[in-house]
Amino acid sequence: MIETVIDIVSWICLLLGGAFGIIGGLGLVRLPDFFTRLHAAGVAETLCPLLIVLGLVLQSGLSLLTLKLVLILLFLLFTAPTATHAVARAAMLDGVEPSLGNDESEPTSGEPSSNT
């Protein structure tokens, strides 16, 4: 009984992970400019591995395999923001300008927010 429940949760995690992967990939193709595509890559690099590793961990229980999977997840989650930031920073220095949405009344840049 318990095993069936765990199996079903694991399936849901795996399939949701795959779905978020595809959504991230779609965003990578569909979104308008480089900086917005970074966010799409973020979807494919955070939630997708998180859900898939969770699904796989539920399959194997407590074992060496689980430990290695968790290590993989940690490596991915630690390196993903560093790589994203490096790419964004390099692009900014190279003069790639982010396009800004301007159909809202509030100012979009140049003003440091004071409410910390």
Partner: peptide, 11 residues
Amino acid sequence: TTMAIFATMAL
């Protein structure tokens, strides 16, 4: 799931 990830890779 593997197929879904392959699709992501293609995109």
